[in-house]
C-alpha cells in the first residue's frame, strides 16, 4: 500500500529587507515577504491566483550581490538575502517602466491601485514624445459578441489573460501571445473572432485584467454611457446556483442591479475563477 506523500516541513529563513531582519518560510518569494511586512509593492502581471510570469518588471527590488534588479514576484527569498525595495535604483526602474507603459498604452481605466502607484512614482511620459509621433498600441476595441469587449489599446501585455485562459485556470487556450517585440499582442489563431475561437466565455481573462483592456460588455456600455459608478457599487458574496461545486460569487450591485460578477481570488473553491453560467447567468435576477 502506498503512503500519502507529505512534503518535508519547510524550514525558516531570515532576510534583511529595507534594513529590517525578517523571518520567512523557505520558498516564500520576496513579494510574499513585502506583502507580509506591509511594504507596498507595485505589481501588474502578478496575481495571487496565477503563476508569476515576471514580465511587467514594476515589482523589481535590489538584492545585494545581484548585478541587475530582481523581480520580487517570482524570486524566492534566500537565507541571508539583503533586499532594498525603495532605493534610487528601484524607484528609477519602477518609474520608467510605468512611463514606458503610459507612453504606449491607454492606462485610464486601470485599477485604482495601479493609478495610485503611478501617482506615487510621479509617472510622466511626456518626454518620450506626443502619442501621435511615437509608437503606441492605439486601435479600436474589438466587440464581437454580447458579453466581452477587448480594448487592446489598454493592453500592457501582462499575460494574465493568457494564463487564466490556459493552465492557470480554464485550460481552454483560446488566446495566446502572437507576434514579437512591440508588435506582440494577445490574439486568437489567425485573429479569428472570439465566437469562432475556442473561447468558452468563462470571463476569467476579464477577471484578471488590470488595465480595463478586457471588460464585460455591460461595464463597457455603462462606461461609454457615463453611468458606471464604482464608488456607489456594493459587493455581496454568495454561492452560485448553477451546479454543486459551490463557487463563491461576488455580485457587484449598482442601483439595485447586478452590473458585474467576480469571484474572490483567495477562496479555495474557485481561486477567483468561474464559468460562463456563474459569470453571466444572472440576467434572470433582474428580468
Amino acid at each position: 500500500m502506498n503512503e500519502i506523500p507529505v512534503g518535508a516541513p519547510r524550514s525558516q529563513i531570515e532576510v534583511q529587507i529595507d534594513g529590517k531582519q525578517v523571518k520567512a518560510v523557505e520558498g516564500a518569494t520576496i513579494l510574499n515577504i513585502c506583502q507580509k511586512e506591509g511594504i507596498d509593492t507595485p505589481t501588474l502581471c502578478w496575481a495571487e491566483n496565477l503563476t508569476p510570469v515576471n514580465v511587467c518588471r514594476v515589482c523589481v527590488v535590489e538584492v545585494e550581490g545581484s548585478r541587475t534588479l530582481v523581480p520580487s514576484c517570482s524570486r524566492p527569498a534566500e537565507d541571508g538575502m539583503v533586499i532594498s525595495t525603495d532605493s534610487d535604483r528601484v524607484r528609477k526602474s519602477r518609474k520608467l517602466v510605468f512611463e514606458l507603459l503610459d507612453s504606449s498604452v491607454d492606462m485610464d481605466r486601470s485599477t485604482t491601485e495601479v493609478k495610485e502607484w503611478m501617482e506615487h512614482y510621479e509617472v510622466d511620459s511626456s518626454r518620450m514624445g506626443s502619442k501621435n509621433e511615437i509608437a503606441t498600441v492605439a486601435q479600436p476595441p474589438k466587440i464581437q459578441d454580447s458579453l466581452y469587449v477587448r480594448d487592446y489599446e489598454r493592453c500592457i501585455l501582462c499575460y494574465k489573460c493568457v494564463e487564466a485562459c490556459g493552465e492557470d485556470a480554464q485550460y481552454t487556450f483560446a488566446i495566446a501571445t502572437a507576434g514579437r517585440g512591440f508588435d506582440a499582442h494577445i490574439s486568437t489563431e489567425f485573429d479569428v473572432s472570439l465566437p469562432d475561437s475556442a473561447c468558452v466565455y468563462c470571463g476569467n481573462c476579464i477577471g484578471v485584467c488590470p488595465t480595463g483592456a478586457l471588460v464585460f460588455k455591460t461595464e463597457h456600455d455603462m462606461r461609454e454611457e457615463g453611468t458606471w459608478d464604482e464608488e456607489t457599487q456594493e459587493v455581496t458574496t454568495t454561492v452560485c446556483s448553477f451546479c454543486g461545486v459551490g463557487c463563491n460569487l461576488e455580485l457587484h450591485v449598482q442601483d439595485e442591479k447586478i452590473v458585474k460578477v467576480t469571484s474572490p481570488a483567495d477562496h479555495s473553491v474557485t481561486s477567483g475563477h468561474l464559468c460562463i453560467k456563474g459569470r453571466f447567468g444572472w440576467q434572470h435576477v433582474q428580468s
Binding site: 455581496t236 454561492v239 452560485c240 446556483s241 459551490g246 463563491n248 473553491v269
Partner: peptide, 22 residues
C-alpha cells in the same frame, strides 16, 4: 442565491453562506 440569506451545501459537503445582494 441573490435575494435571500441562508446557506447552501455543495457536492463536497461544504456549507457556505448565501447572501442577498438585491
Amino acid at each position: 442565491w441573490a435575494e435571500s440569506e441562508g446557506t447552501a451545501t455543495s457536492s463536497e459537503r461544504r456549507v457556505q453562506r448565501i447572501r442577498a445582494a438585491v
